[in-house]
């Protein structure tokens, strides 16, 4: 009998990647210039690949009829365990690249630690994903610096984005029950353990971008990891799941 916390922990990793991938894919055909349109779409593709690997593993843990597709397309909002930061709106380019930087940096330290997990499959996926995320961190931090230390317009845009997104970063480092259980079992990564590295990297890039780190004690949104989402997730799922809901088991 597979432990429920391991299933939930794996689904959380998968959902985080899938929902952000779906969000980023909205830029496909709408990027500011062709090369950056391609870049954000490539990042989406990497995230979908990571999500697929985590879903495939979760499906084997769940057993029965579960597949990567049933987990992506047939669960409802309350079953999704992604951090809220993955589902909030893309906003403008500044908001998209800032969110990408904050999430990719989180994933970078998370996967770096997870690749040492005694759970061999989680470790293998993390090892693979880390190489891809390294490129995402580099690309997104360059954009944060470019906009922050750019023109007065770009500066004003990224400062507005920071105000919008920062209250969603606290959740990344507040463990929920299945994370705590996975940590106790020695399999998962304690989010508290990666928080310092994350803050260090964020403040290094912010300082180059001439951005001010928001105050420590501001109020933070939580709930995503326990299935309590913003209204935005429903719209994402409505679009993403439409085909499988309207034409169950459709294949092409």
């Amino acid at each position: 009998m597979t432990k429920q916390y391991l299933i939930d922990y794996t689904l959380q990793l998968a959902d985080n990647a899938l929902i952000l991938a779906q969000r980023n894919s909205e830029w496909c055909g709408h990027g500011p210039v062709l090369e950056q349109d391609i870049a954000i779409s490539n990042i989406s593709l990497d995230l979908i690949g990571q999500a697929r690997n985590f879903y495939q593993y979760a499906a084997t843990l769940i057993g029965g009829n579960a597949t990567e597709d049933s987990l992506a397309y047939l669960r409802d909002a309350i079953d999704f365990k992604n951090n809220l930061i993955s589902e909030i709106l893309n906003g403008d380019w500044a908001q998209t690249v800032l969110r990408q930087f904050l999430v990719s940096t989180y994933q970078f330290y998370l996967y770096d630690a997870l690749q040492k997990s005694p759970d061999q499959q989680l470790a293998a996926i993390a090892e693979k994903a880390l190489k891809e995320v390294t490129y995402h961190v580099r690309w997104s931090s360059e954009w944060v610096i470019r906009l922050g230390d750019g023109t007065s317009e770009s500066k004003q845009r990224i400062e507005k984005a920071l105000e919008e997104i920062w209250p969603y970063t606290g959740e990344l480092f507040i463990p929920v029950q299945h994370e705590t259980d996975a940590v106790t079992a020695g399999i998962g990564v304690d989010p508290k353990m990666i928080e310092e590295n994350w803050k260090q990297k964020v403040s290094t890039v912010f300082s180059e971008a001439t951005l001010t780190l928001p105050p420590q004690n501001i109020w933070m949104h939580t709930g995503g990891k326990n299935g309590i989402h913003t209204e935005y997730l429903g719209y994402i799922l409505a679009e993403m799941q439409f085909m499988q809901r309207a034409y169950p088991s459709a294949e092409w």
């Binding site: 090369e35 950056q36 391609i38 870049a39 490539n42 593709l45 990497d46 490129y135 690309w139």
Partner: peptide, 13 residues
């Protein structure tokens, strides 16, 4: 370098 991300995942431009 034009972009770290190219026409496929494995290429840069």
């Amino acid at each position: 370098l034009v972009s770290q991300f190219g026409s496929t995942a494995c290429k840069a431009l």
